[in-house]
């Protein structure tokens, strides 16, 4: 069950710097921990996160096993034009979640 929460303004003035926050449900299992049976729990992390504004990449990051479960990412960008921001998380075990929000720029 994958789910995410995005916090972005619905409207912004052209040229404004806006903050975007993205939170996603994920165990971020490091691959370095033994389970209760003594065997290593296989690594299961998000590897990559990106945000595109009307198709153009505005933010991207690569994750590492040292990042806590349910990663919360916050970044800033400059509002240019109305449209859609698409978010994409990909990772181990074919993890792939997309989310998008609409924004109006005046």
């Amino acid at each position: 069950m994958a789910n995410a929460l995005i916090n972005a303004p619905k409207t912004a003035k052209r040229g404004d710097t806006i903050e975007i926050k993205a939170l996603i449900l994920h165990p971020m299992e490091t691959g370095f921990r033994p389970g209760t049976n003594g065997r290593m729990i296989p690594r299961n992390i998000i590897e990559h996160f990106s945000a595109r504004w009307n198709g153009e990449e505005i933010f991207a990051m690569t994750f590492s096993p040292a990042i806590a479960a349910n990663p919360f990412v916050s970044f800033f960008t400059v509002a240019k034009e109305s449209g859609k921001i698409d978010f994409l998380w990909t990772g181990d075990e074919d993890f792939r979640v997309t989310e998008s929000v609409a924004i109006t720029v005046t």
Partner: peptide
């Protein structure tokens, strides 16, 4: 609510 992982 958008930073609280409990909301997931």
């Amino acid at each position: 609510d958008t930073a609280n992982p409990g909301m997931l």
